[in-house]
Design a protein around this nucleic acid. Structure first.
Lengths: 201, 201
DNA sequence: ACACTTTCGGCACACGGTGACTCGAAATCC
DNA sequence: GGATTTCGAGTCACCGTGTGCCGAAAGTGT
């Protein structure tokens, strides 16, 4: 996640003061905190550097946008919150995943970060590339579907299957509707049925 | 769409210079043009006023954010592009609607405006209220489902049905995937099957 | 021990957008 | 004609951005 024209090739690296892990962690934490305290819109590079007790230059040296910082800061949390335990029963697994997904998108700070980033991606190609390089939602859904149903028996490209599974909940929350009204188990049933019906054609 | 503390109550309105329709149209057009020319991020209130040949104060008098301007400027286009003709066959109708939806979201300037606004809504409550007050996607989908399937026979609240129909395509495009790979007719079939299967329970 | 390289914090700067203010002129109703 | 409201134009303080420069710190290799 080195945004500037960093050169970490061993061939050209000739020592120098090592990067301060303390400063790095402070910046990431400050970004995380600021997101929940003042929201994404009011978040600034200046504010992050001040909250982290770090020079603004130090921030710009490693990240060029606040989106990059937030992406790195929330990536680990996102991955963890969207990880699922496999019970063996596909329906249970998928329903559990959808529940975790809704919780993530609607209530988790990391989810708020993801929504903010995906929002920016709609009108900032740099952020769009960031997300397309590593999309926590798509990745987690892929894993769950593979493990729950087996990757070889899918009648549809895996990516399209993820859209079928995630789509409804995704739209529901992104469009600002009340997540309580979602029924993950019902949606998981629909998903399985769709795949089965597509298989027999 | 009077953002400032406008007072249009007849009881308090005592004449005055009428609002210039020319200035209003010029501002809305300028916003539309700027969106496709420089993108949402580079769009500014200053730029809009200059392009419209209008004082910046005149812009601020009627709209407080660029989101409000863009919302008003693209609302008509969005409604028109998402309107569908009814053929009588539910599957045809829904498939045609999904095709129009994908075209709107992925290729239309009004769709770009909508994505930008929905993005802003993820971290700006003012924009979120704007969209929840009148959501072109939700509204158009509601109409199509009602006309194609009849509003009384739905086994699911209408809002949730719209999420089932729209969701997959919505996620696909918002997450930056290639719209060509979407198969509207297939998705329409899935949707109808889901509703039928839910009904028989 | 020494030179070299890179990061660090702190300060300063130009640039551009924001949102509010003032002013005089124009347009409409009573 | 008086009251009211919008219009264009200009001005202003404020803030975030991104860059540049400085000296100090903390590592590398010889």
């Amino acid at each position: 996640m080195y945004s500037r024209g960093m050169n970490m090739d061993k061939a050209h690296y000739h020592g120098g003061r090592p990067r301060s892990e303390q400063a790095r962690a402070a910046i990431l934490n400050a970004a995380d905190d600021l997101l929940v305290e003042v929201g994404y819109a009011a978040m600034t590079m200046k504010g992050i550097s001040e909250k982290a007790g770090v020079s603004r230059q130090t921030v710009y040296r490693w990240w060029s946008h606040k989106a990059e910082i937030l992406f790195e800061a929330s990536a680990a949390d996102a991955e963890e919150e969207l990880a699922t335990s496999l019970t063996g029963d596909p329906l249970d697994d998928l329903a559990a995943y959808l529940e975790a997904l809704v919780r993530f998108l609607a209530h988790s700070p990391a989810g708020a970060a993801y929504r903010a980033l995906l929002g920016e991606a709609q009108h900032d190609s740099a952020v769009a590339e960031l997300l397309s390089a590593k999309d926590p939602l798509g990745d987690s859904a892929r894993v769950v579907i593979e493990r729950a149903l087996g990757k070889d028996t899918l009648p549809v490209p895996l990516d399209q299957a993820t859209a079928l599974l995630i789509g409804p909940s995704f739209f529901w929350i992104l469009s600002g509707r009340d997540p309580v009204q979602l029924v993950p188990r019902q949606l998981a049933e629909d998903f399985i049925r769709d795949l089965q019906s597509r298989q027999s054609r």
